[in-house]
Design a binder for these strands. Sequence first.
DNA 1: CGTCACTACCTCAGTTAACGAGGTACTGGG
DNA 2: CCCAGTACCTCGTTAACTGAGGTAGTGACG
Lengths: 120, 120
Amino acid sequence: MSPLRRSQLLKGTTELLILSVLEDEPHHGYEIAQLIRDRGVGLALSESALYPALHRLEARGALSGSWEEGRGGPRRRYYTLTESGRGLLVDARREWDRFVTEVGSVAAGAPRTVTEVRSA
Amino acid sequence: MSPLRRSQLLKGTTELLILSVLEDEPHHGYEIAQLIRDRGVGLALSESALYPALHRLEARGALSGSWEEGRGGPRRRYYTLTESGRGLLVDARREWDRFVTEVGSVAAGAPRTVTEVRSA
DNA sequence: CGTCACTACCTCAGTTAACGAGGTACTGGG
DNA sequence: CCCAGTACCTCGTTAACTGAGGTAGTGACG
């Protein structure tokens, strides 16, 4: 039942991204997608991936959501990182870094600098 | 028909890993899995992920396989990287690097705090 | 001689989560 | 009135990984 199992990492960076965006302050779903699109150049998180992921994370207790009546627009659900969510984020980042390093060590092929990629 | 579409990258590093291992010399399936396990510390490519991936890559023309009768053991299928496979590898590496950079730019959180705050 | 371990290939059912295409509902502009 | 934008959501389809098998050969143990 561990979150971010190795097998899920392959397709499951979605949750890492969501948790990361919520680290500093709460946001609502639509806004989370926009933030990810802004920060990650070509990263487009589709809504049909986003909302189920938010529900999963909330069900797991990583996020707590609350409705806010929309002034001049539809109501929004704001998500806040819980304590356990913060723990999950730490784990997810560590797992991701490890995974990237390991893939790099196989995929690097000819002796090539891994640091060059990171310094961008 | 683009190989390694963004959506697949999430869970589809398998093909990148296989292509990388075959870059310098041909190998058979079982050996490919072992090489990946050796080079990537915690990376375990299961056989049920490996063989379908090899078949996909061969069907796409990225690999060409040939049977060799086993001297002192079962027959093996050796896979060689084709020209188009080499191109695919270049693309896959570039896509992977880009993806890692983009995820990093979102997941990094506050500027430069990954290693400083709360060192593991 | 049976069976165990190892190599080497393969397949199948089940699961997970992304994708595209929808749908609801409210606001404001042409 | 309809369209665009915000904001939420769901559904059917698809991709591909997982775990659990299955085949078949070799060599070693007792």
